[in-house]
Amino acid sequence: MRSLVYIFAALIVMSLAYWAYLENYRTKASLGDVAGLQGEIGQMREELAVLRAEWAYLNRPDRLRELADLNYDRLGLLPLMPEQFGRVDQIAYPGPALAPITGAVDVIAVGEGRP
């Protein structure tokens, strides 16, 4: 009986040691992943900053003005002027909706009937 307890205890110790060993390696792997991810985040932040700078550079007022001038034929963009403010009552009401189509004539059938 006693030897059975010893063997059992030894097995438990071995399995716990194995579990701790596994956990240790999994933790190390996770830490490595985190470090990698943080490096990636840092790189992406840097890229984001570059993209923001590029966005701001491409949207600088000078460039937009030049583009608007170049494409005046197609877009017809002009600076915003006071006259362009409107009032709600200047907008026309939408026209009445089309009446539902009733008593439709089957054109093909009618056409077939005539030579």
């Binding site: 840097e46 900053a49 570059v50 923001r52 700078a53 966005w55 701001a56 949207n59």
Partner: peptide, 19 residues
């Protein structure tokens, strides 16, 4: 670590950093 950006009243960038 980077120097902070400067933006206008609507958040458009006036000054930023480039690597």
């Amino acid at each position: 670590a980077a120097r902070a950006d400067i933006v206008d009243r609507n958040g458009r960038i006036l000054a930023t950093n480039l690597v």
